[in-house]
Design a protein around this nucleic acid. Structure first.
Lengths: 213, 213
DNA sequence: GGTCAATGTAAACGATTGCTGACTTGCAAA
DNA sequence: TTTGCAAGTCAGCAATCGTTTACATTGACC
């Protein structure tokens, strides 16, 4: 994985049907993608390693080779989801930005990448390491949201604002969960970005707008 | 379970250490209580029938005897949770009532009865019957909330108001989930009714108050 | 006291699960 | 071409899980 690796690491070739039939990096990536979807949709213990391997088009034993164990793969999925979700294109500086970004995260198909990563943050394997990653990621999210509301660490009403940011986060994650196929709550599941932006703006504004508090 | 059962059903005696060492009704109740907690906290597939039986102080085989299967017990837990949650003391007639009732449901210890029943509504076993119960219960909840906002079936903006009610429901369930011990997000987890009532009032008002719509 | 159905117990079965070890295949440097 | 090692395959193990079967115990009714 290191840049000076003696092995021919493929960095920019995403076409899979061509060269490199035996590519460890691609195999790892396929396992991470398949694992993310399975873990997010079905939960940790419902997911079987044979299904993940089958989805990835890869032999089951390679999960243990590359990630040590099923929990290792789960932790890796959680870490990549944290990195990809955290790789926010630009800083959220205002409540308007926050509303726009939140709407973009939530809307889109319930099986979309972003929704899957958010659902992953709600799944637990009982493993302590994975739980710590999830807890830290959620905390970071709430801090970003409260920062968009003009929060400064150590200021007065700090706890109250953080609580409100976490409630806003609860709304976001709750929507993602209720939109999932196994629940299928209409009209929420089929609602698009245009339908969600208004209510989301109302919620975020009501929770985080400075005037009242 | 029927009132005219030929067996001496104990209806008002909750002291367990005394008479009636072999009581089918009490055994069923113990299994339902233990199963509710396990299913709600750990999810369906992470829960082991031997753990439920152990918690209930009962032999494992009795789960299959009284509920047919693990899924049968899960469905029974879901049904009783629906009944107990639906047995709302009085009708919710105003937004103020809704705020008060919602706050009462959410706050309280994360291991409390109400929280467990709400978490149960977010768990899935893959079984179609259980999923239908969950879907109907959630839909009923959202309809109650929109009714408190003055909703009449078939009216204009009906879909938009229902969507907003489901988003409010998402907030409630999201909070319950993030307060769970496996997540443990502070200050949300330790927040009491006094801390939650204000923000919840803001959210519900912003989503369901009539003036804008 | 005897009878019988209801209730509870003990043990094991078959299926599934995560995982491992020995083996094979492909790629690339020598 | 030969050789060395990473990448991948295959079969099976050990443990666990839900479930079932055969048996024991309790207690009400005649």
């Amino acid at each position: 994985m290191s840049p000076d690796s003696p092995f021919p690491v493929v960095t920019d070739d995403d076409s899979e049907t061509t060269v490199r039939s035996r590519d460890a990096g691609a195999t790892r990536r396929h396992l991470l993608t398949a694992g993310r979807r399975r873990f997010a949709q079905d939960g940790y213990s419902s997911t079987k390693v044979r299904d993940i391997a089958s989805d990835a088009g890869v032999n089951v034993a390679l999960i243990n080779r590359y990630f040590g164990s099923k929990e290792g793969l789960f932790e890796a999925c959680l870490a990549t989801a944290r990195d990809e979700l955290g790789r926010t294109d630009d800083a959220t500086s205002s409540l308007g930005d926050l509303v726009e970004k939140t709407t973009r995260q939530i809307s889109g198909p319930p099986s979309g990448e972003r929704t899957l990563m958010m659902l992953l943050l709600l799944r637990s394997s009982g493993d302590e390491g994975a739980d710590r990653i999830r807890r830290n990621t959620l905390r970071s999210f709430a801090e970003q949201m409260s920062a968009a509301a003009g929060w400064a660490p150590g200021s007065a009403q700090s706890d109250d604002l953080m609580l409100r940011a976490q409630i806003a986060l609860s709304t976001m994650l709750g929507i993602a969960l209720l939109r999932a196929s196994s629940t299928g709550l209409e009209p929420l599941t089929s609602a698009g970005a245009g339908d969600l932006e208004g209510p989301l703006r109302d919620v975020i504004t009501a929770l985080l707008a400075p005037p009242a508090g």
